[in-house]
Design a protein around this nucleic acid. Sequence first.
DNA 1: ATGTGATTTGTACTATCGTACAAAAGATCA
DNA 2: TGATCTTTTGTACGATAGTACAAATCACAT
Lengths: 236, 236
Amino acid sequence: MVRKPTSKETARKPNMREAILAAAEELFATNGFNAVSVRDIAQAAGANPGSVTYHFKTKDGLLLEIYRRHCGPMNLRRSELLAAAKRVRDLQDRLEAIVRAYVVPAFTSGSDLAGGGARFTRLRAVMSAEGNEVARKIIAQTFDDTSHAFIDAIHESLPHIPRTDIVWRSHFLLGALYYSLVTPDRVSRLSRGEADGGDAAGAIEQLVQATVASFQAPPLDHAAPARRRPVVSSKT
Amino acid sequence: MVRKPTSKETARKPNMREAILAAAEELFATNGFNAVSVRDIAQAAGANPGSVTYHFKTKDGLLLEIYRRHCGPMNLRRSELLAAAKRVRDLQDRLEAIVRAYVVPAFTSGSDLAGGGARFTRLRAVMSAEGNEVARKIIAQTFDDTSHAFIDAIHESLPHIPRTDIVWRSHFLLGALYYSLVTPDRVSRLSRGEADGGDAAGAIEQLVQATVASFQAPPLDHAAPARRRPVVSSKT
DNA sequence: ATGTGATTTGTACTATCGTACAAAAGATCA
DNA sequence: TGATCTTTTGTACGATAGTACAAATCACAT
């Protein structure tokens, strides 16, 4: 009996703390940080507002804990997948594997912390859009390392593309990834029901294929302008 | 004297109404809707809080007016550019022209309403992320037509790609576009200063090239699975 | 100059926000 | 059982939110 449930884990209701975290995650991810009140979260979790203060001290503290919960497992999984991807021999396959290693954990977190990575990624997208300060700090110090690792790996499998271009295209990848999680219904609507924007597996495949192609695009010639700029005049 | 400045346009301070709109646009676009108070907006515009109520009745009304201001000119310009793009003979050039016709007005609005399209597009991105109700309604009924027109045009120049795939890739384009406007600093940071995320012209070129390549990617084979899925195991 | 309508100001009201804190309730173990 | 610690509840407080509205101010036609 080295490990007993030290009463810290045995709440009256089963894990109220977790319920609050899950509710907050869901509400923040769909409505933004400021639109959600502590009372909203408490009600969604079936808890008392004061209970939120007790567990997380402040609303910022609650957001911080959400990040702490997910960042570790997600980046760990990404590292594992990236390491495996780097060992792929075929260059084309390797690139695809790298992109997949970046995308997949964003949709389904490794340890799948009570709700999966998709919800947390969506939350990150929303916090990013809102310019949330708490999130900005964590992201810069937690995700930039991972991003650099992926950019370097991609650069190695595409040595003829300038690093700058790869940075841009990685940026586009993240934007596309975020947006797919933020408004999946738009895909369903525009495809007139042919595609399901909420289907994670489908979204991943589409995103990976499109992104791999974008990475393989010829580099932008920074010295000379575009080969032949198509003439588009708005004056008919 | 058919047209005299009917005192409706001659405020004490030069166009306080416009100042409020501009300030609200800026603040909403960078901080989200709920994080910004009417008093914040009034202060940034050098106006009195009550003045905001006078001109726009409610905070939602203010947001609505911002959309009304930009949607018309922007979609008009997109239509013009799309029409011109469709007349490009070379298929490769035409595709690029179409993508450019979609992207360019998002960065710089046609009539450049006091601040340009980039700010408004960023605002759209943020409202989308926050799931803002006012914005959702307007977007569905104003932008979907334009989106369909572009999707159809792209489909015509890429007949062998299923429409579903084009929808997905257009969706990724919009996500990348949004994200580029939301966090341009990330590009500067990840490129270690080599690229300037805030440079609209550079962002447009990168985005257009990457997107054209993604559209030209082979279609996803919905019947048979991927040709040869690269094996990536997380267990080393 | 004066009246009139359009704006701006100042202030106040109610609702809700985040947070604090004491009391109640439950769990744990001597 | 009773002491002690953790968790939950209930309530309250100050700050700030959106909005309303009367008074003050301005522009302009007469």
